[in-house]
Simulated assay, not measured.
Amino acid sequence: MTDVAGFLADVGGRLAALEAEGLTKRERLIEGAQGARLRIGGREMLNLCANNYLGLANDPRLVAAAGAAMQSHGFGMASVRFICGTQDIHRSLEARIAGFLGMQDAILFAACFDANGGVFEALLTEADAVVSDSLNHASIIDGVRLCKAARYRFANNNMADLEAQLQAARQAGARFILIATDGVFSMDGTAADLAGITRLAGRYGAVTLVDDCHATGFVGPQGRGTAAAAGVRVDILTGTFGKALGGALGGYIAGPQPVIDLLRQRARPYLFSNALPPAVVGAALAAFDIVEGADDLRAKLAKNAAYWRAGLTALGFDLLPGSHPIVPVMIGDAVLAQAFAQALDRRGIMVSAFFFPVVPRGAARIRTQMSAGLSRADLDFALAAFAAAGKELGVLA
């Protein structure tokens, strides 16, 4: 007989251990809309931890587009796509994604986590191999685990190690090899070496897959992503509407027609999840229209990121190098990182501390994220708060 009391005691013990190690994650209740400034517990806070890169999460144009789509197409689909869950706007959005990314077709998912979770199992068999970057997102890691292909891992952005793993996969007799990587690694804000990856893919006849969640909309010409920025082509792209493209939910895979067609038949998260609600689809269509002409927002985002990095460096903080709007402030200790986040909270700054298992032990950090919605005054206010908190906790001398 199952020992329910013992099971619950074990769960409680694991929670207590997380708390003792300073690894407990806590949610904060936002009162109102997502934005550069928001309210928590009746206090106005400056938001430095959202994926709202272009500041579109509460854009009136997207709110209006979502409302119009609900008026014309209803609230929810109450079905998966292949039964009675496909509307004309779903296919319009898939065509829009494919055209924007220069792909033959695209397929929608409830989230990019589902897209990455379903792509490998549907496309690969035990005769194939996946070669995955060591810092890939958890969704890629989980997706690879679900498929039967042989698994190889290469050190982050290390082309020599990637080549060694490709050689090993070829020598083991892999039929097809798929290289999987994030376009931008979300914890570090560094871009994948797609020039090197595509060069090696060509040499070893490998398929390339890039998760561009932290790039689509604001990296590369017209925000077309990391491959466009690097001037290369990749075979399969995955992405999300949950970040720069409005910040709601939903993901996609874009690629060659046969790939998309097979995913419609075999990708389990697609086959067994409700279709995206019309409001999200309508707003996503509007987001692509905005993003294509948003050079002004992309320029402001880049200026904000450069100013923020320069300001933190001048104060003496330890940053990971780069130019992406993800700017990690390295703290090291998980407990200290959480104390630092709390000290910033007291000064009106909303940030999140990241620690194990999200990042390696000893590499705890405050991951700050820039947005086009932030003003220069906002950044100066935040720099003053970082300086004061850093001195209070001994992070700065």
Rank of each mutant, 00 (worst) to 15 (best):
102 G>M: 14
231 G>F: 13
357 P>Q: 11
242 G>R: 00
99 G>Y: 09
192 A>R: 01
225 G>C: 13
205 G>K: 07
167 Q>A: 13
78 A>M: 15
74 G>D: 05
338 Q>M: 06
294 A>G: 02
195 A>E: 12
175 R>I: 03
255 G>S: 04
203 R>E: 08
322 G>S: 01
357 P>Y: 05
204 Y>E: 01
61 R>I: 11
277 P>N: 10
51 N>P: 04
194 L>K: 07
182 D>N: 15
212 D>C: 13
324 H>Q: 05
359 V>Y: 09
263 L>W: 04
329 V>K: 05
381 F>N: 02
222 Q>K: 13
207 V>D: 04
133 D>G: 04
118 G>D: 08
241 F>R: 00
173 G>M: 08
291 V>E: 02
229 A>S: 15
251 G>W: 04
188 D>T: 15
170 R>Q: 11
300 K>Y: 02
48 L>I: 04
281 V>Q: 07
332 G>Y: 10
321 P>H: 05
54 L>I: 03
132 S>M: 15
155 A>L: 14
251 G>T: 04
98 A>R: 01
319 L>R: 10
297 L>K: 10
31 E>V: 00
394 G>C: 04
91 R>C: 05
64 A>T: 06
191 A>F: 10
78 A>S: 15
316 G>Q: 11
349 I>H: 03
227 A>K: 00
41 G>C: 05
389 A>M: 08
16 A>S: 14
70 M>R: 08
25 K>D: 11
119 V>H: 11
365 R>S: 13
62 L>F: 01
368 T>S: 15
379 L>E: 07
51 N>Q: 09
88 D>Y: 05
391 K>Q: 08
359 V>L: 06
155 A>H: 09
113 F>I: 10
155 A>Y: 12
221 P>T: 08
239 G>N: 07
339 A>S: 12
362 G>H: 14
341 A>Q: 02
48 L>A: 05
138 A>N: 15
243 K>G: 00
209 L>H: 15
89 I>P: 03
387 A>R: 12
144 V>E: 13
379 L>H: 06
22 G>N: 03
239 G>A: 10
15 L>I: 10
41 G>R: 00
248 A>N: 05
59 D>P: 05
81 R>V: 10
69 A>Y: 03
113 F>G: 12
285 L>E: 09
133 D>N: 12
144 V>R: 14
117 G>R: 10
203 R>M: 09
351 V>N: 09
366 I>S: 06
379 L>A: 11
264 R>A: 11
215 A>I: 02
9 A>H: 10
130 V>K: 08
139 S>T: 09
82 F>T: 14
125 T>M: 07
264 R>Y: 07
288 F>C: 07
358 V>A: 15
114 D>F: 15
119 V>Q: 09
210 V>P: 01
30 I>T: 00
215 A>R: 01
243 K>C: 01
29 L>T: 06
236 I>F: 11
232 V>H: 08
119 V>C: 12
170 R>N: 07
103 M>E: 11
104 Q>H: 14
107 I>Q: 03
387 A>V: 02
167 Q>L: 15
84 C>N: 15
6 G>C: 10
387 A>H: 07
11 V>Y: 12
123 L>R: 03
27 E>F: 13
326 I>T: 07
50 A>F: 09
298 R>Y: 02
